[in-house]
Design a binder for these strands. Structure first.
Length: 269
DNA sequence: AGCGATGTTCGCCG
DNA sequence: TCGGCGAACATCGC
């Protein structure tokens, strides 16, 4: 699940449960998730300190340890955060575990091991190292910057939207929803779309991501809460378009499984 | 049993 | 140089 809306909700969850608690110890039941650090280094950096703020850019969540830098989380395809009070509540597949001094815990859970946990001294440098573009919801990333970022691209609009070095935060699921809402075919090219359609696509991008956060992306009731004309609940084989009733098409585009409505979504608008 | 899955990265190719 | 593509990573569920 973790694309921008999911990670934004993880960030809020982290703020609600982990921020402010004194960290007594850090353990790493599965070190494969560590990226550029060791259990010892992570423990030295965090033990005895408190998380005092969070920062999200795209799908990366960073948690600040005062002047001692950051712990960086990336959730891959299946990673989650889980805070719990009773030690017996430790989830399966816990890779990193923060034990707080008050007896509660925060688990970083990753079933498929595609997530990453690292440390950083400087957040901006961390993002630069990863060639991460501006966050899709960054207020400073406006229509003009969006159009400029996409305009020169030769490939499909879908590959551009999901390129984290161009715009950070959009993955396979939300690129499909954004294109559906903008009525743009995933194989359209930025050049064929032109400035006006790209500007509309920008509006759809913001609207979709903000709506997904508001509706509680990833929660059980999420699909029911979404507006009636959203593709997400119908993003499957032989489903019907919530707008025109036509059959949803499935194709591999930009190397990813893509769902769209061939009737509503056009390559040149 | 086999295939595909919300992500990222790398090598190969046009 | 750019972009598409497939594989790899690891595991689960249909």
């Amino acid at each position: 699940m973790p694309e921008l809306p999911d990670v934004e909700l993880y960030r809020r969850y982290f703020e609600a449960h982990a921020t402010g608690r004194e960290i007594a110890a850090v353990s790493v039941p599965d070190t494969r998730i560590l990226d550029g650090t060791t259990p010892q280094a992570l423990g030295r950096r965090a033990a005895g300190r408190r998380f005092d703020g969070t920062l999200r850019r795209g799908k990366h969540l960073l948690a600040r340890l005062g002047a001692d830098g950051w712990v960086a989380f990336h959730f891959g395809m299946t990673g989650t955060l889980e805070w719990f009070e009773d030690a017996a509540g430790e989830p399966e597949h816990t890779c990193v575990l923060f034990d707080f001094a008050d007896g509660s815990h925060l688990a970083i859970v990753s079933v498929r091991m595609l997530g990453r946990v690292g440390v950083a001294d400087d957040a901006e440098a961390f993002f630069e190292d990863r060639h991460l573009g501006p966050d899709a919801l960054d207020p400073d990333f406006g229509r003009a910057a969006f159009c400029k970022a996409l305009a020169g691209r030769k490939g499909t609009i879908k590959s551009a939207l999901t390129d984290q070095s161009l715009i950070a935060g959009i993955g396979n699921i939300y690129s499909d929803e954004i294109l559906f809402q903008a009525r743009v075919h995933p194989r359209a090219t930025p050049a064929a779309l032109g400035e006006a359609a790209l500007a509309e696509l920008y509006d759809s991008m913001r609207e979709v991501l903000l709506t997904a956060v508001e509706c509680g992306a990833g929660s059980e009731q999420f699909l029911d809460r979404l507006p009636k004309d959203y593709l997400l609940p119908h993003r499957a084989e032989s489903e019907r378009c919530p707008r025109c009733g036509g059959e949803i098409a499935h194709a591999t585009i930009a190397g990813r499984s893509s769902y769209f409505c061939p009737n509503c979504q056009k390559a040149d608008r």
